[in-house]
Amino acid sequence: MNIIVCVKHVPETAEADIKIDSEEKSIELSGLVFDINEWDNYALEEAVLLKEKHGGTVTAITVGSEDSESTLRKCLARGSDKAIRLTDKRFEESDSYAIAKILHSVIKNLPFDLILTGVQADDVGYAMVGPILAGLLGIPHATMVKKIELSDGASKVNRELEGGLEEVVELKLPALFSIQTGINEPRYVSIMGIRKAMQKEIKVLSLGDLELNKNDVGVAGSWIKIEKIYVPPAEKQTEYIEGSPEEVATKIIEIIKSRGLI
């Protein structure tokens, strides 16, 4: 079972103070902590679990600058056997479509039975790379996968639907699954893992090594171009309650009481 996992190095923004940069096309990235995309973290763990069960290899691939090596190193330390980084100045501003093309140009020449991606990336959240990649490779895919069972040449997966409902789908292998959070419990990086990973190389490829030209990537090769970003307007007229915790609590209770809820 040869498994390829596509991972992305993303900034952690849930608790960070986000600032929009002066060109209003992206956020200020300096000072943010980067790590493996949350969904990819589960995808990587699933790949390693499947390898541990069925044998084979795991290859982690990312499209990203040198900084993203730390995410690949993490993958190697957690059980990935190989890692590939695709990087080129001309890849900048690629959307999910262009990223999928870049990944495809490499993956099509690799042996694999299974490709795992995260459902979406924390930062841009398109949820497109996985199924587009499957389309380019001409292999079956399932998105939002919460359970995988493999048998000879086939797989049975649970897809998560709305409201907690799941559907079971059967797919032929090779296939691509985009992994939903909660499918497993990602392990910590161990010192043993880091030691082992140090002996593994990260292969670095750029545009010249790929069967792509510059119009396939970057803005030229993308469907989507971001014009402007801004802080979303409030949907409701939110009233902010200020003061010490005691004052805040008193106010909240007053409001709840006035609505007859206590």
């Binding site: 389309g135 639907l161 469907w223």
Partner: peptide, 24 residues
């Protein structure tokens, strides 16, 4: 829809037809 249904369907449809797609 950007739903479990649409996320499974739309990207691949777009790539087959070569039609630009954006999501969510």
């Amino acid at each position: 829809g950007h739903t479990a249904f649409g996320v499974d369907l739309a990207p691949r449809l777009a790539i087959e037809l070569g039609i630009p797609l954006t999501t969510d």
